[in-house]
Design a protein around this nucleic acid. Structure first.
Lengths: 157, 157
DNA sequence: GGTGAAATCTACCTAGG
DNA sequence: CCTAGGTAGATTTCACC
């Protein structure tokens, strides 16, 4: 098992920020940016990966170009708060590819879902034929995303 | 300028899904997964990048291991809805690294912010000393994330 | 779809504090 | 003894066939 936390110096933070912006930044490019030899960049990078700080590398796609024109946040309230209902609802989440992310919040046992759909009709079908018919869902409120003034900034390391 | 949309076949979709899971998947690995030669994988990949479907590649970090233990969604309502107020608030967003993403929704001119902070105190300071004192902010409501039952699934291509 | 040159990564080695 | 920098073998990518 990895260590829970490791000491990060300024170079580590700069490296993490750079890799959050471009995972394909080459050792030489990073070397120039951070004033450190390419071999040390590789060594630090490996250390950060092994420590679990870097969980992986992903391609970022353009939803609009994929035809995913409707983006929404859906708040779901469960009728009862037993662990049974939660587990059942969590299973439902995993079966729906349109639901990209789901979070539970403090206070009430309700969920916030982030959803991508090709059109409004698909979103409405998801809400009415999937979420609202689930036995423990009591209320659903959805808000369509208009614009994204700030998107996917790097984590503040 | 790139084309607004291109035709995607099943292999393209599988490739996009694979790259969303692992940006460092090698041509040979993808070749085995998709039953296509490595050189064709590279060619398709290049086409998808040039078409703008793939916007980039990013490292994904573990917030907890970075000491970002508090994650929240903050809803902000602006007092007035002029373009001036919006622009001023958008500028504020760009100055705060704790705010990872921001969206505007249909209906009211309010913003949903996704925030990562090291502790509750930092979150409260952000809310009270940064957001609430901004001249056009009228109301702020924040919810702390407890758990993430589904996180960062690939876009449904 | 395949091949070869160019670039990049990674492990090992050497030097300095 | 630990951290930084350099070098060579192995992998991978990319332009061309």
């Amino acid at each position: 098992m990895q260590k829970n936390s490791i000491e990060l110096d300024e170079t580590d933070r700069a490296l993490l920020t750079a890799l959050q912006k471009n995972a394909y930044a080459t050792g030489q490019e990073l070397s120039d940016m951070l004033n450190l030899s390419a071999s040390q960049i590789g060594r630090r990078r490996q250390r950060l990966e092994e420590a679990g700080l870097i969980m992986g590398y992903r391609a970022r796609l353009d939803p609009a170009r994929l035809g995913l024109d409707v983006q929404a946040f859906v708040q779901v309230q469960l009728a009862r708060h037993g662990s049974d209902e939660g587990a059942s609802f969590t299973r439902l989440l995993s079966t729906r590819p349109e639901i990209i992310s789901a979070w539970t919040m403090t206070g009430e046992a309700d969920y916030l879902l982030r959803v991508f759909c090709p059109d409004l009709q698909t979103l409405n079908r998801l809400i009415h034929e999937v979420l609202l018919v689930h036995r423990s869902v009591s209320r659903v409120h959805s808000q369509i995303v208009m614009d994204q003034p700030k998107g996917d900034a790097p984590l503040p390391v």
